[in-house]
Simulated scan of single mutants.
Amino acid sequence: MTKLKLAVIGLGHMGKHMLHRWVPQFAEQVEVAALCDNEESRLQQEAEAAGSSARLYTDYRVLLNEEQLDLVYIAVPPSMHHDVARIAFEKGVHVFCEKPLANSLQEARHLLELAEQSDRLHAIHFSFPMDPEVVQFKQLIDEQAVGPIEQMDFYLEFPQWPRAWQQNPWITTRHEGGYLLEVGIHWIHMIQQVFGPITQVKSQIEYPSDGRQCESRVSAVMSLHNGMDIHVSGTDHREGEERVSLVVHGEQGIIALENWSSLYMGPNEAELRPVPVRGGEDELPVFKQVLQILNGKPGQVYDFYDGYNAQVVLEALRKPGEGVTDLRQQLINRRD
């Protein structure tokens, strides 16, 4: 089997995971041909730690112009996603992009158009709906295990932002940081996959006095296509441990997906009990699926349609208008 030539652009938290954790699992299928980061010391350090013979670049434009690649993994800050993906498509390279798709709805729409025009794979790094806990959560919802749904509550509550392991220059900025963008986007996409389109948003945001800083508190209502409301509570001043959870209130009880991977169900909040979850694979589902598709095998990925439609909701939360924002004219159905 001829190995696919991969470039990893951005060696922050996710880029390091790709280089040190995920690529070694599929070393027989993929070769890291090039690495890029704007900090030369970090670039050298991570390449040496991985024992990589990849060519090193501090400018992604030079990399994409010089290298013959099959796939690029984009793990730079959101404001750079558009330019990196645009050039990759122009060079005929398959694109696997970190979330969110772009740094604005306009950029996300343009990237979707470029992806449509290309014959290249376009995948965005959404893996949450593939997690065993979410698969079982969806099954319980589909089976109406707690009866018809009456309301949902979505919590994005942190004792501090950023979290201790997330220190970088941009993650606290209003331009391309914040917990809505970094964490909320995963849950927005998961909700769209489990419950269907989010078609209306009413959002209120409190910001710190420093105009450069991201949101501090969020109070919002996201309405599904069927009229069901999801109440959103966000803060970076939570007392105690962080809570990132979706609680579904049904006529006959409650199902709660707590902190990504803990599933509970019961007749009321005081009587919630853990739901045993069948185990899944240890390998990163999305990267494995990307490689399978590129090797001509069946695979499942979330593409730039999913990335765009999640961004529609994200931007309505981050940049609220007056009253309720109707999203129906902005959402786009996948074209087969």
Rank of each mutant, 00 (worst) to 15 (best):
H82E: 10
H186V: 02
V301R: 00
E67A: 07
S216E: 12
V290P: 00
L35S: 06
C36L: 06
R318Y: 04
H225C: 10
R318H: 01
D83P: 10
Y264F: 15
F287N: 03
G92D: 00
A115M: 12
M80R: 12
A85C: 14
D59M: 07
T2D: 11
Q151K: 15
W260V: 04
A50T: 01
E113N: 13
Y302E: 01
L284R: 04
P77E: 09
T58I: 01
G51F: 09
D229F: 02
D119H: 15
S118L: 03
N295F: 03
E271H: 13
L331A: 07
A310S: 15
V313K: 00
F126Y: 15
G240D: 09
L114T: 03
F154N: 06
N226I: 07
D153T: 09
G299K: 01
Q136F: 00
V290N: 08
Q192Y: 11
E157K: 11
H249A: 09
V324C: 00
G147L: 05
F287C: 08
F96P: 01
E258F: 10
V23Q: 08
L101N: 06
Q292K: 15
L6K: 00
L19R: 04
Y264K: 10
S203R: 00
S52E: 11
S203A: 15
G147A: 08
I188P: 05
H125R: 05
H122N: 15
K16N: 06
V183M: 05
I254A: 08
R217K: 14
F154V: 11
N103M: 06
E46M: 13
E315C: 01
A75I: 03
Y308S: 00
S233D: 03
M14L: 13
Q167D: 10
P162N: 04
L69A: 08
G240C: 00
E39W: 14
L43Y: 02
P197N: 12
M152R: 10
F304P: 06
R61A: 02
W187F: 11
G10M: 05
I293W: 00
P169C: 12
A50Y: 10
M190R: 01
N259I: 11
A310W: 08
L121G: 12
A50S: 13
E251G: 00
V312T: 05
N168L: 09
F304E: 06
Y155G: 10
S209L: 13
